[in-house]
Design a protein around this nucleic acid. Structure first.
Length: 250
DNA sequence: GGCAGATAGTCTTTAATCTT
DNA sequence: AAGATTAAAGACTATCTGCC
């Protein structure tokens, strides 16, 4: 069910009325000091946050949520720890608020997506590095991904992957490589021309190869060439568009 | 500067499958 | 069989971009 605004605000008023003190006010209950804070984080108007958060990931909450608690309950320089970091919303927001951070996650994808956004390269550096990485020769991946990618596109992805694995294994991977890996990972599949794949479900939803064959048939589509270098640069620009010069070099 | 179309992050709905 | 859970599909919508 989708509660309309009226019922939502009625619920909010009920909750606020039942609370005996006002926002920011501290009272003593049974010897425990309690300060009240309230906020809204789910309506569209309150979702706007830094562009640097905008990478695809399943199940992510709004940056305003950690922002609210970090701002009200911690000071500049405090350390914020997130034990289930996911795409890193909490620690990135903490970083933007000038806090120290620590995080971990069982899924290594978390580190791939989070860490590079603390060491943001200049767009020029990303462009120069992308130009150095071989575009490949249309090599296919080990598994059949032809229902998602045009052959040339897939060749570029395979070549980039090989390059990154090689950099990692030889200990040469740097912040520019890591940034490219983060952006490329978030561009792999999606539902618009900004992704490497043909139209598929939005990137927070997985699709099996068999299902994608059906989607292609129904939509009468075949994967067409996508220049992954251009798309990575475009997304790079988009990710940093809200950042101040200080935030970019922090 | 304002409009229209494109983009893409996220939300809702429906279908399929599993559990009790 | 009913209820719960998960998968699939696409809809919704704020923001961006290009154009006049």
């Amino acid at each position: 069910m989708n509660p309309d605004d009226d019922s939502e605000s009625a619920f909010k008023n009920l909750v606020l009325r039942s609370c005996p003190f006002h926002d920011g006010e501290t009272i003593d209950i049974a010897g425990i000091r309690i300060t009240r804070y309230s906020g809204e984080f789910w309506t569209s108007a309150q979702r706007k946050a830094s562009s640097v958060h905008e990478i695809s990931y399943r199940a992510c909450f709004k940056p305003q949520l950690p922002h609210f608690f970090i701002k009200n309950l911690t000071g500049v320089g405090s350390r914020i720890y997130d034990p289930f970091s996911g795409r890193g919303t909490t620690v990135i927001e903490a970083g933007l608020l000038g806090r120290q951070i620590a995080s971990n996650d069982a899924n290594p994808l978390s580190r791939i997506l989070t860490r590079p956004r603390f060491f943001i390269p200049a767009e020029k550096q990303v462009a120069a590095r992308m130009a150095e990485i071989p575009a490949g020769t249309g090599e296919r991946a080990e598994i059949d991904l032809s229902m998602f990618y045009d052959q040339k596109t897939e060749g570029e992805i395979v070549s980039l992957r090989q390059y990154l694995i090689n950099q990692e294994e030889t200990g040469r991977i740097d912040s520019v490589d890591s940034w490219i890996r983060m952006v490329a990972t978030s561009r792999l599949t999606g539902h618009s021309a900004g992704f490497f794949s043909v139209y598929t479900l939005p990137p927070n939803q997985a699709v099996s190869p068999e299902r994608q064959v059906q989607i292609n048939k129904r939509r009468k589509q075949v994967p067409e060439y996508r220049n992954i270098r251009d798309l990575i640069l475009r997304k790079t620009r988009s990710l940093v568009r809200d950042l101040t010069p200080e935030e970019r070099t922090r």
